[in-house]
Structures are given as C-alpha cells and as structure tokens.
Amino acid sequence: MRIGMVCPYSFDVPGGVQFHVRDLAEVFLDQGHEVSVLAPADDDEPLPPYLVSCGRAVPVRYNGSVARLTFGPVTSARVGRWLEHGRFDVLHLHEPVTPSVSLMALWAAEQPVVATFHTSTTRSRAMHAAQPLLRPSLEKIHARIAVSEDAAQTVRSHLGGDTYIIPNGVHVERFARAGRVPAWQGTPAAPTLAFLGRVDERRKGLAVALAAMPRVLDAHPGARLLVAGPGDASETLRHADPRASAATELLGPVSDGDKESLLASVDAYLAPHLGGESFGIVLVEAMAAGAPVLASDLPPFLRVLDDGRAGATFPVGSADGLADAVLDVLGDGSVRERLRAAGRARAPLFDWTGVSGQVMAVYETVRAGADAAPPERARLWGRLVRGGAGTGAER
C-alpha cells in the first residue's frame, strides 16, 4: 500500500506526535509498504529517507506547550507537489485541525483520508476556530482515530461523529531488553528516580517532583533525581529546596537508546504531570523497561495504568502524594517488584505489532469504501487548493 502521512509539528524537534508518526511509518516500511511522511523540518538537518520537508517551522504556543508549525503559500505549494507525486492509496493526517501542514493537506486531498487526533482538552481553541475552515473538508475524512478515550471525547465535543480509539505504540521489546547504565543505577543507600519531559513546561510537573524530594532525602539521603529532556530548568531549580536541587542531575535531551537504558536502570519513574495529556506514552515505555511508575491521577494516565493496578498514582499537583508513593516504593521491595511485574505484563498491550495492525485495518476499511466517489464539492475544494499550490509560490 502507498501511504502518505502528514505530521504538523517540526520533525527535527522531539515530541510525542513526531515519535508516533516516525515509529508508525517505520513499522509499515518494515512490513513492505511504501510510506512517505510530509512534515516541517529544517532542510539543513539530516532527515530520514522517507521524510519530505515542507519547510522550516516557527514556534507557536499551543495546548500549554510550544509547537513548531508551518503554514502559508510555500507550504501549500509543497503539499500540492507531494500529493501529486505520491499517488497515495490512503492519506493519514495527524492533528488535522492544527493550523499547519496537516490542515493544508486536508484541504488539498482527493484520496481517502484517515485522521488521527492526539490532543485532549475540554476547550480546544484550535478546533473551535478551525470549524469554518474545516466544514468543506470534513466530509473528506473517511475515518477518525483518537489515541485515547480523552482525545476521542475532545473530537466528539468539537466535531461530532464516530471515532476509532487506537493507542500510541511502543517498541516494547527494545525497552524490555535495554541494558542498564551503572551511573544511573540506584543502590539501597542511593536510589535513583527518573523524570522525562520538556523541563521548562510547567504542565510536565518538574516543580512537583522537586518539591517531593526533601521528604525523600530525609529517608534516603543519597537519593538522586535524574532529569532527561530539552529545555532550561534553571528557573525551576532556583526556586526549589537547595537539597533537592543538589540531588538533581540534568541529563539534557537523550537518544532513544539512552532513554531505554535510563528507564531500565532507575528504581522508579516519576510522572507528576499537571494536565494537557491525552495518553502517556512514556508511562508505557517505563513499564516495558521495568521501572515502577508513579504518576499523577490524570484520567489518561489512570487508563494507561489500568486504574492504578500497573502503577502507583497520587493526586495531581500533590508533592506530598508523590513523596508518599516514592517512599512506599523505595521502602518496600515487594511493592517495587509488584509494580514492575504489573507494568511489564501490561506494556505489551501497547506494542506496535498490535497497534499498527489496528491502524492498517482502518486503512483497509477506508480503501474498501473509496469506490464510492467523494462528493463533487469535496473534489472541487481539493482541486481549487491544489490549483493554488501550482502557481509558483516558491519562485
């Protein structure tokens, strides 16, 4: 099958949607399908062979974070050429209402379209603002996928219609067989805790983890908090207890291999997120690596953790709740081993083998229904947009 995927966020900046698109594309390539991914990217950066850049992105604040998006006539021209050249059997758009390349590809599309929604928010300004722009193209979306029930509820609230729920995928075996790094391994006298995420985004909860550390250090003076992820944490550390700051090691952005080894090495993984999450892919990664997961009780996290059976949870934003969970895990080996075993048992539910099969089933369903010609209004809209793409906007 010839598959075209569109990612709205810059492919050369780490992010959950980018990783999802990358992994799904590579899984399908390994299965023998032809896959091309269109996404914003710096043309000077080394890019995977299946990626086509639609231009450099600009940072925009979105959903409590900073997304790197691209929009405009140059992007439109590149979208049109990519679609014409690709002759895709199915077009898979991620976050199609985000004002970036996915939305432009939806406007221009004439082939069967599958759309995946990753965002969970009760009030999506992007979806609300995009409705007038989307109305002529909504009928082109043959199937909608949401990565969680929370993301599906967002879609139903703003766009209506039925939605398949297919979770994010993880290469479970890679995490399960990851080697441990002695520098990151804990000991009974000096246990290690891990935090992964963009360190200067408040919603990721680094400040909560730091606020929990003094109580942890009272019981385990040698404990260390290993923080991995992009961003500047200096402001957060400056406001933290000096003992917590001293016990924190900033690892910066880490490679996929280092992330796997980090999660396999530590005594517990901390996920003190405050909101804005639709799934919790790193929770699954930690479970697959054998790290006990201690997470705030956000509804998406509770679903991933099987209502707390595969990980310990605590009230959102509660440093004391997190400290209690950490002390429970570090102080009782049976608790630690129970969470490890439960996490490892649950992680395979999210393995890419099963997840990619569910996505392919949606593709095949959409293709089977594509014999019915799309409404003339949808075809005309796509041709108008493509006509604009071929006006030499880049010259």
Score class of each variant (00 low, 15 high):
311 G>P: 08
312 A>W: 01
312 A>Q: 05
312 A>N: 03
312 A>I: 04
312 A>S: 14
313 T>Q: 11
313 T>K: 03
313 T>E: 10
314 F>A: 08
314 F>M: 12
314 F>C: 14
314 F>D: 10
315 P>Y: 13
315 P>A: 15
316 V>Y: 10
317 G>S: 14
317 G>W: 15
317 G>M: 14
318 S>Y: 06
318 S>C: 12
318 S>D: 11
319 A>Q: 13
319 A>E: 10
320 D>T: 15
321 G>D: 02
321 G>T: 09
321 G>S: 05
321 G>P: 07
322 L>C: 08
322 L>K: 09
322 L>T: 01
323 A>Q: 00
323 A>Y: 04
323 A>F: 04
323 A>M: 05
324 D>Q: 12
324 D>H: 11
324 D>W: 03
324 D>E: 08
324 D>Y: 00
325 A>C: 00
325 A>Q: 03
325 A>Y: 03
326 V>T: 03
326 V>W: 00
327 L>S: 01
327 L>D: 01
328 D>G: 14
328 D>C: 15
329 V>E: 10
329 V>H: 04
329 V>L: 03
330 L>F: 04
330 L>E: 06
330 L>T: 02
330 L>M: 05
331 G>M: 10
331 G>N: 05
331 G>D: 12
331 G>L: 06
332 D>F: 05
332 D>W: 07
333 G>Y: 12
333 G>I: 11
334 S>Q: 14
334 S>R: 13
334 S>E: 13
336 R>G: 09
336 R>H: 13
336 R>S: 14
336 R>A: 14
336 R>T: 07
337 E>L: 11
337 E>F: 07
338 R>T: 13
339 L>Y: 07
339 L>N: 09
340 R>M: 06
340 R>E: 03
340 R>T: 09
340 R>I: 07
341 A>K: 15
341 A>G: 12
341 A>D: 12
342 A>Y: 09
342 A>C: 12
343 G>R: 03
343 G>Q: 04
343 G>T: 02
344 R>L: 07
344 R>G: 09
344 R>Y: 01
345 A>L: 12
345 A>H: 13
345 A>E: 14
346 R>V: 09
347 A>R: 09
348 P>D: 07
348 P>N: 11
349 L>E: 15
349 L>I: 12
349 L>Y: 12
350 F>K: 07
352 W>E: 00
354 G>I: 03
355 V>W: 01
356 S>R: 04
357 G>D: 01
357 G>T: 01
358 Q>F: 06
358 Q>C: 04
358 Q>N: 04
358 Q>V: 01
359 V>G: 05
360 M>T: 00
361 A>R: 01
361 A>Q: 05
361 A>C: 02
361 A>T: 03
362 V>N: 06
362 V>M: 04
362 V>H: 01
363 Y>D: 01
363 Y>T: 08
365 T>F: 00
366 V>D: 02
366 V>C: 03
367 R>I: 01
367 R>L: 12
367 R>M: 11
369 G>F: 10
370 A>M: 11
371 D>F: 03
371 D>E: 08
372 A>K: 11
373 A>L: 15
373 A>H: 10
374 P>A: 15
374 P>V: 14
375 P>A: 15
375 P>N: 13
376 E>R: 15
376 E>L: 11
376 E>M: 14
376 E>K: 15
377 R>T: 15
377 R>M: 13
377 R>D: 14
